[in-house]
Simulated assay, not measured.
Amino acid sequence: MLIFSVILLSIVALIFLLMIASYVGLWFRAFVSGTPIQLFNIIGMSLRKIPPKLIVDTRIMSYKAGLKQIGVQDLETHYLAGGKVLDVVQAMIAADKANIPLDWRQATAIDLAGRNIFEAVKTSVYPKVIDCPARKDGEWIVAVARDGIQLLCRARVTVRTNIAQLVGGATEETIIARVGEGIVTAIGQCKTHQEVLADPQLISELVLNKGLDAQTAYEILSIDIADINVGENIGARLREAQAKSDMEIARAKAEEKRAFAVATKQENEAKIPLAMAKAFEAGNLGIMQYTKLKNIEADTHMREQIGKEVRVD
C-alpha cells in the first residue's frame, strides 16, 4: 500500500513538474532577455485564458526593439479586448525603425477598429498603387471634352497610409471615386480631346491639386494616367438629336398653322349662305345675280376638275 502511494505521488509530482516546466521555461527566457516576468504572473495568464507564450514573446520582442514602455499588463489587456497583440507590436517596431510616430494607444485603437495595423505601417513605408477603376471590373473612367469627344481612361494612384486618419478615415473606395470624379471634371474643362491626348500629365496635375485625400486613410503621392482611348463623338450625337427635335417642332408648328388655315376657311365658307340670305332680305341681291353667281361657281369647279385630270395624265 505504501509503495502504491509513493508511485501515485511520484506520478502526480511528475505531471506537476511537466506542467510547471513550460512556465519555468518562459520565465527563464524572459529573465535572460533582460525583461523578467514573475512566474506566478505567467501561470496566472493561463488561468485568465491568455496564451503565456504570446505575451512573453511579444514582451521580449518589444523590449529588445527598444519599446520598453509596452508592459505585460498592456499586452494582456489588448489581448482580452480582442486585439491582435503580435500585429500591433510588429507594427510599432516597424514604425519606430521608420521614424513614423505611433504610440501604443493609437496602435491598439487602430487594431481594435478592424484595420490591419501592420499592413498600414508597411504601406506608410512602402507606398502601394491603386488602380482606378479596379482592373478586375474591366471598367473605364468615361469623360467628355468640350469638343464633344468621349475619352476612356484608366489611372494608377500611388498612396501611402495616413496613420493619423486611419481610424475614421475613408477607405480605398473613396479614393477611387474621388480620383474618377476629378479626372472627369479635368477632361471636361479641356477645349479639345487633343489637349488630353497630347499631355495626359496635365490631367494628373489638375486632379492631384484638388486635395482628394482629405479625410481619408491615405495620402495621395501621385496620379498617373495609365491608359487613354478615344470613344464616341457624343457632341455630334447630341447635335443630331437636337436637329431631329427641332425638325419635329417645326413640323408640329407647320401642321398647327395649316389646321388653323383650314378651320378659318371653313368658318368663312359657313358665313357665305348667311350673308347671301341677309343680302336677299335687304334687297341687295336679286334672283338673276344669284343665278349668275352659281353659274360662276359651277364653271370654276369644272375648270378645277379638268385641271386635276390634266395633271394626272
Rank of each mutant, 00 (worst) to 15 (best):
L208M: 11
R160C: 08
E195F: 06
D224Y: 01
G71R: 03
Q242F: 05
E304D: 09
I11R: 04
I110A: 06
I7F: 04
E269G: 00
A13Y: 02
D224S: 08
V56N: 03
L2Q: 10
D74N: 03
K210A: 14
I100N: 14
Q305Y: 11
M247Q: 12
A263T: 03
N116S: 12
G114N: 03
F31C: 03
L14I: 01
L166A: 02
R258Q: 05
V184H: 08
I296Q: 15
E76D: 00
G138N: 05
I60R: 04
A98D: 12
R105W: 00
R303Q: 13
L86Y: 12
N162Y: 06
N268Q: 15
A186V: 09
N233G: 03
V157T: 13
Y218Q: 10
R154Y: 00
I175K: 03
I7T: 04
S62Q: 05
I7A: 01
I149P: 05
L86D: 15
E255Q: 06
R160L: 04
P51N: 10
D246F: 05
M61T: 00
I50Y: 03
V179R: 08
I20M: 15
K308T: 05
E181W: 11
Y218L: 09
E248S: 05
R303A: 10
P127A: 06
P51G: 09
N229S: 03
M92Y: 10
P51V: 01
A21C: 01
D299V: 01
R251N: 05
I55W: 05
Q242T: 01
L206S: 12
G307H: 13
V56G: 02
Y218T: 03
V12S: 02
P200W: 09
G34C: 08
E232H: 09
D111L: 00
N41F: 02
L293S: 14
R146D: 13
N209M: 08
N295D: 12
D103G: 04
S46K: 06
D147W: 08
S46V: 02
R48P: 02
E173R: 09
E256C: 02
F40K: 06
I149S: 06
I223D: 14
P200E: 04
A298I: 02
Y218M: 05
A134E: 15
A164M: 05
K84Q: 09
L102P: 07
G180I: 09
G211L: 11
S22R: 14
T158C: 03
C190T: 07
I37D: 02
I20F: 13
K294P: 00
K244S: 06
E255L: 07
V262E: 11
V179G: 14
C153D: 00
P200F: 11
D313M: 10
N229D: 13
L202S: 13
G66N: 07
V85S: 08
T171R: 10
R154I: 01
T264I: 05
L208E: 14
K128G: 08
Q73G: 06
A98W: 14
V88I: 02
K253G: 01
L54V: 01
A261C: 06
I20R: 15
Q69D: 14
I110Q: 11
